[in-house]
Design a protein around this nucleic acid. Structure first.
Length: 469
RNA sequence: GGUCCCAUCGUCUAGUGGCCUAGGACGCUGCCCUUUCACGGCGGAAACACGAGUUCGAACCUCGUUGGGAUCACCA
């Protein structure tokens, strides 16, 4: 069987982290099995769908590197087909018109609640003669679902899940205005698109049973379901828009790399032995349902940071430079000049060893673009106090006479100075670092000297050494 | 409340009846490396929710309890 999966978000908001994981799993599953991965926008809810949200979803998918096969399907454009299916169901006696008013329905639920039953429609129009229909009500079309027996979902993740049919009411297929509901639309679209495997959040598990009844009524083959546990917020509750669920672009803005997000999401609800850092290629090779867990997981930013740091170290310098440039420019409030970019380029190999996110890279790169005289942070200020200026004046003599300005030569030079002066290496390195960068967190001192170049380095040192102690 | 799902360190997880005095990762923490910060290396604290049962033997199977979650729309 050819595997065809899909990701079917509703465009009522951004692409949030749970949706992104669902998309990733479906994408991985399709790629692993050499099948297709489709994207369908579920914009059945005309009122709540927005073009901005659709754009955000598409952008998010692209940023994550999840490419889909074929054209994007817009569910709303299939409305006629959905209605046609409803009419067929009606003609076959598998659906019926229901003339209940909203008030009646509300009353029904009140009563059910009071009696401790499920909040279900009681099927009062199921076998009622249409001649009794009130003229003032636009009827909805409901599925005539079986009332006896049970519906079993053979779920790839959850196993066999049984629902008693008397617990499932007759769901609305067509609204009073003739538009299809989600329940109808998903089933028809999944069928028409030939979707073979449906992987989605387990908040849809209950829906699956009712959808199964619809497949059955139409005589269609059922896709294979796989309901994956949800990602919860730090407090263990479902992630929702007002509950810590951020759009995927928020993660981008926070400086996370798509490969890091992918890796972290992959490990939420799926595992492959003790493997932690899993490349996308490996993920495609390994991903299958047997690695999926059944219990919900929580999103842990600390772990994401760690993973992101790993991928930053793995990234090539130019990519990182491109990502750092805009933030750096914004932070220092000016466009970057040629010299700035040269320095950033030279510094990136050292910078990326100690950054967990792009903003951190930016932060750590600021010293490169600072103009003299440098502002000192607290630690640096104390490092250049006291005898430091004198010491720096002496070391600058050594530095000045250095012919070759590279890491090894500078290393030898500064160590020679320390030896000559009979002081510990750290005693000279600390003031030097402070004078050169103004801060405590920096790349190695020889890297800093190399990156800044001889002229700038000596100038920065002179700013301190010539200051009256 | 009805229905459905879930339950191993704080978090993500490995574990599918003996290999478990429960492994890995993040985080926390001690030491080492070291010019700062990271990285890296070596250690440490930290979990099978509870109670029965099945079995020679249970984290793994069964039942119950407790706890958490999802869902019950003319939303998707």
């Amino acid at each position: 069987m050819t595997v065809i999966t899909r990701f079917a978000p509703s465009p009522t908001g951004f692409l949030h982290i749970g949706g992104a994981r669902t998309a990733l799993f479906n994408w991985l599953y399709a790629r692993h099995h050499g099948g297709q991965f489709r994207l369908r926008i579920e914009d059945t809810d005309r009122a709540r769908s927005t073009p901005e949200a659709m754009e955000a979803i598409v952008d998010g998918m692209q940023w994550l590197g999840l490419d889909w096969d074929g054209e994007v399907v817009y569910q709303s454009q299939q409305a006629d087909r959905h209605a046609e299916v409803a009419r067929q169901l009606l003609a076959d006696g598998n659906a019926y018109y229901c003339y209940c008013t909203p008030e009646e329905l509300a009353e029904m639920r009140e009563k059910a609640k009071a009696e401790g039953r499920s909040l279900m429609y009681d099927g009062r129009w199921r076998d009622r003669d249409p001649s009794e229909a009130p003229a003032s009500v636009d009827p909805v079309v409901r599925l005539k679902a079986p009332q006896q027996g049970e519906t079993i979902i053979e779920d790839q993740v959850q196993g066999n899940v049984k629902f008693k049919n008397d617990q499932l009411d007759d769901m609305v297929l067509l609204r009073g205005d003739g538009t299809p509901t989600y329940m109808l639309s998903v089933v028809v679209d999944d069928h028409d698109m030939g979707i073979s495997h449906i992987m989605r959040g387990d908040d849809h598990l209950n829906n699956a049973a009712r959808q199964a009844q619809l497949y059955k009524a139409m005589g269609w083959d059922m896709p294979v379901f796989g309901h994956i546990p949800l990602i919860h917020g730090a407090d263990g509750a479902k992630l929702s828009k007002r509950h810590g669920a951020l759009g995927i672009e928020a993660y981008k803005d926070m400086g996370y790399l798509p490969e890091a997000i992918r890796n972290h999401l992959l490990r939420l609800g799926w595992g492959h032995g003790d493997d932690e850092f899993i490349s996308t290629e490996q993920a495609i090779e390994w991903f299958d349902v047997d690695g999926l867990g059944k219990s919900p997981s929580r999103f842990d930013f600390k772990k994401l940071d760690n993973i992101n740091g790993y991928y930053i170290r793995q990234s090539d310098d130019q990519t990182l430079i491109n990502l750092t440039l805009p933030g750096l420019s914004e932070t220092i409030g000016r466009d970057l000049g040629e010299v700035d970019i040269e320095r950033l380029t030279a510094a990136m190999p050292a910078l990326k060893e100690r950054g967990k996110s792009i903003p951190e890279l930016v932060e750590n790169a600021i010293f490169l673009t600072d103009t003299r005289p440098l502002e000192m942070d607290e630690k640096s200020a104390s490092a250049v106090a006291g005898d430091a200026p004198k010491l720096l004046a002496e070391i600058s003599v050594y530095l000045k006479s250095t012919e070759v300005w590279d890491h090894d030569a500078l290393d030898a030079c500064v160590r020679q100075f320390a030896t000559d002066r009979e002081i510990k290496f750290g005693m000279v390195a600390q003031p030097l670092r402070a004078a050169l960068t103004g801060r405590a967190k920096t790349p190695g001192i020889f890297d800093v000297l190399t990156i800044l170049g001889k002229e700038e380095s000596l100038a920065r040192v002179a700013d301190i050494s010539t200051k009256q102690a």
